Amino acid sequence: MDYQFTLDFINGQPCAEFNLEHHVFGPWLESEIGTDQSKFNAVQALVNASETRSDKLQLNGKEYSLSIEEGEATVFANIICSDQDLPERLIDDVDNFDMNQTASCGVEDLLEMLSAWHQFW
């Protein structure tokens, strides 16, 4: 997973940029974790709990959520669309949108990235 952390030159807030495959981790870090120590601790607690449990664990945010299952961490936008009531011509567009609104990595990679994020801010 390739990423880079920078500071927004206007407001001084930390920004996270990820490669295309893991793009969703950037806005998740910025909007759901930010520089809030309690949110950072909640993610770490979820990761720790996942080490002793085999069921799916999830931390819901306002815009993005994190789920951990079987050593895999997935971040996804809460607005992921359902194609139930869409015209057939739009289904491919929704599938493409959904694909860009979710990303996964191993729990170890998540912990490494979170540690780097925490050290950055």
Rank of each mutant, 00 (worst) to 15 (best):
S115F: 09
N96D: 15
I33Y: 00
L46Y: 00
E108L: 09
H118T: 02
A49R: 03
I79L: 15
E63Y: 10
G12D: 08
C81F: 10
L20W: 13
T102P: 13
M1Y: 07
L114T: 04
F5I: 01
L114V: 09
L110W: 01
N60W: 02
S65F: 05
C15R: 14
F9Q: 12
L90K: 09
I68H: 00
G106S: 11
E72V: 15
E32L: 03
Y3E: 05
L7V: 07
D95G: 07
Q101Y: 13
A103L: 07
D2H: 03
C81L: 12
F97I: 08
F40T: 09
Q44R: 07
S67K: 03
V43G: 06
F120Q: 06
D55I: 02
Q119L: 11
G34Q: 08
Q13A: 06
E51A: 05
L111T: 10
D85W: 11
F9V: 11
E108C: 07
L86W: 08
W117D: 02
L111M: 13
A16K: 05
E32Q: 05
S38W: 11
K39T: 14
L57F: 02
L110T: 14
H22F: 13
G12M: 10
I80C: 10
H118K: 11
L114Y: 02
Q58P: 04
A73L: 02
G71C: 02
T102Q: 06
Q13W: 10
F76T: 03
L110Y: 05
F76D: 01
E72A: 09
N11D: 14
N48K: 11
Y3P: 10
D85I: 14
V24I: 07
E21P: 11
A73C: 08
E21Y: 09
E17H: 10
G106L: 07
I91S: 06
S31G: 11
V75G: 01
A45L: 02
V75Y: 03
Q4D: 01
N78P: 01
D95S: 05
D95F: 04
F18L: 08
D2Q: 04
F97K: 09
L90N: 09
D8Q: 15
T6G: 05
S104K: 08
D2F: 05
E112G: 12
W28H: 05
G26L: 06
N78Y: 00
F9L: 14
D36I: 11
N96P: 13
T52E: 11
L46H: 01
S104M: 04
G26D: 05
